[in-house]
Every structure is written in structure tokens, then in C-alpha cells.
């Protein structure tokens, strides 16, 4: 992406134009769904790398919404719960709270190596060793951390299942 330095009185206008020009487009066809899949993300005690990559995915550089997903800030509004981190014992209650608040038809997705089986943080006095200690992990996105592109691609694949 070529950047041209512009200063002066029109610089703000150029900044708007750049932001519009950079607006990302979803790869492939826009999904044919009645409504977007609403995702709620919880970090449960890892290095925060996966969570920050999902945060990037939800930022302006990626086409999360055009791909048919919306990040929500309340689990009561969510269809999918995305978990990152090694699942500390203290966080188990938080996961349960979020899961119970979600409406029927919900799904659970482990994002990153820690969330599946603890990754570099297996079970200990403080950690459960990933989501597998609580429930069979049927849906997961590998990586340490997976990139926003990897996560988005995996979400799209999971949406087609």
C-alpha cells in the first residue's frame, strides 16, 4: 500500500480519504446469512497475544463485519463465545457466567494453542490446561498466536459447518 505524505490545511481531508481508501474488503463472496454471527471474546489467562490479534481483527484493518461477524460486548447478545488463554482456575467461573448468559444455539470456539489444551501453560495449581479440561473442544483455531487473517478464515469455515 503506497503512502504519500501530505501536510498542510487539507491533511485532515486526506486522512479521511486514506481511511476510506484502505477500507478492507472481505475475501470472496459476502456470506448469504440472514444476519451476522455475533461473537463475544474472553481472555482466560494467557499471554494476551491471541486476544490482541482478535482485537486487531475487530479494528479497521480487517473486514470482520463484511465477512458476516459482529463483535458484541455482552454475552447475552452473542451467538459464539471465542475463548483465548490457558483457562486459569479463577477464570472458570467467568467462562461459566458468560456461557450461561448466552442465548440458545450458542457455540464455543477455542482460539490459540493455550485455549485448546493450555499450550505452554498446561494444568497446574493455577491453570486448568485449556478448555479441554471443562468440555470437549470441537471447534478450535490453532496458532500461537494465529494471525487475524487465520482467525477470520477459520471463522468463515466454521460458519459453513
Amino acid at each position: 500500500m503506497k503512502i504519500v505524505q501530505r501536510t498542510g490545511p487539507l491533511s485532515l481531508l486526506y486522512a479521511f480519504m486514506d481511511a476510506a481508501r484502505w477500507r478492507p474488503a472481505a475475501d470472496g463472496a459476502t456470506p448469504r446469512r440472514e444476519r451476522s454471527i455475533r461473537i463475544y471474546v474472553l481472555e482466560t489467562g494467557g499471554c494476551e497475544g491471541c486476544f490482541m490479534e482478535i482485537e486487531s481483527l475487530n479494528g479497521s484493518a480487517f473486514a470482520l463485519e463484511q465477512a458476516g461477524f459482529v463483535w458484541v460486548s455482552d454475552p447475552a447478545d452473542a451467538d459464539w463465545l471465542l475463548l483465548t488463554g490457558a483457562v486459569t482456575r479463577v477464570c472458570a467461573e467467568m467462562i461459566d457466567r458468560a456461557w450461561r448468559a448466552m442465548p440458545p444455539g450458542k457455540s464455543l470456539i477455542a482460539v490459540g494453542a493455550c485455549a485448546v489444551d493450555g499450550g505452554p501453560f498446561p494444568a497446574s495449581y493455577a491453570t486448568l490446561g485449556g478448555l479441554q479440561a471443562l468440555t470437549p473442544v470441537r471447534r478450535s483455531i490453532p496458532g500461537c498466536p494465529p494471525s487475524p487473517d487465520d482467525i477470520l478464515r477459520a471463522l468463515q469455515e466454521l460458519a459453513q459447518l
Binding site: 499471554c47 490482541m52 490457558a86 486459569t88 477464570c91 467467568m94 505452554p120 501453560f121 497446574s124
Partner: peptide, 27 residues
């Protein structure tokens, strides 16, 4: 909620063995 017991995981390792975990202390 964020405590993973990092210190207990690193004691007794060589620094080289510890480095991958140290590299994942925090993003």
C-alpha cells in the same frame, strides 16, 4: 484470573529451555 504460575514452570530448567515460555510472558 491472569496468574498462570510462570515462576513454578521455569525453575529447574535451563535458560534455553525457559526461553519459549519467557517469550510468552505477555503480548
Amino acid at each position: 484470573g491472569a496468574h498462570r504460575g510462570v515462576v513454578s514452570r521455569l525453575l529447574g530448567r535451563t535458560p534455553e529451555e525457559a526461553m519459549p515460555l519467557v517469550s510468552r510472558m505477555t503480548a
